[in-house]
Nucleic acid binder design. Sequence first.
DNA 1: CGATTATCCTGTGCGC
DNA 2: TGCGCACAGGATAATC
Length: 270
Amino acid sequence: MPELPEVETVRRGLHQLYLGRPLLGLVLEGHRTVRRHPPGLLRQLEGRVLEGTDRVGKFLFLRWSGGRDLVVHLRMSGQLRAEQRGAQRRPHTHAVMAFDGAGEVHFVDPRTFGELFLLDEARPEGLGHLGPDALRLSAGHLARALDGRRAPLKALLTDQRVVAGVGNIYADEICFAARVRPDRPAGSLSRPAVARLVAGTTDVLARAIEAGGSTLGDGQYCDLFGQPGSFQLQHAVYGREGLPCRSCARPVARVRLGARSSYFCPRCQR
DNA sequence: CGATTATCCTGTGCGC
DNA sequence: TGCGCACAGGATAATC
């Protein structure tokens, strides 16, 4: 599932392929992909030049000449794929952006949770609720966010208002790196544990970006070119229930937090 | 207010 | 073989 490292990998691909290219056309199919404002507003992007790309958490930004930002969120099953001009659309293709001299980008999303929207037109509040991007997380901010909270640590690590970009997979990997159980009450963490979480966040996400993200067995995530990531090969705990901990060889445990599976090493993580 | 649960959706893989 | 169902999970609305 696309989390920060996967979205960053896609962003870099878009930047590499399409920066400086004019958008010839943007075609939408279906009614769910643009839902924060009238879909027709996207037509104002046609003819504009892609001047930059950005990312906050799992939100991807395409910045266009004239000062418009198209926001893309892949949610769980969304993909952006680079295609040749006029390429056949695979199933669940909901948007096609054609670039002058650079082929097309297809937005493919079987579960239709993903979305596109123009930043200025977004309702209700835009993206102002997002916490700091996970790569810019500070110990002070995290300590304040966790202070006094009884909810499981992982619930706050995956709360985009606390820190933007961490989802179910990387929250488990970060907790392992910090040697803290994901089900610990958030407010019970010591100051050193919070510091380890911040360091673990930076380290895990940076290594995951380096590896092109994680592609699980379902093959849901791939980059613009259809290539899977390889960070799953380095996962310490996620998806490894019963397998030996890479550090102490004890079996990795799985618990459910909320409705999500969470993996941890009962010995290495307290 | 904080914490939990339901909702959106489809492909996949499992048990019976 | 086929059917039903649990599961995967990001963000947000609803509810406790």
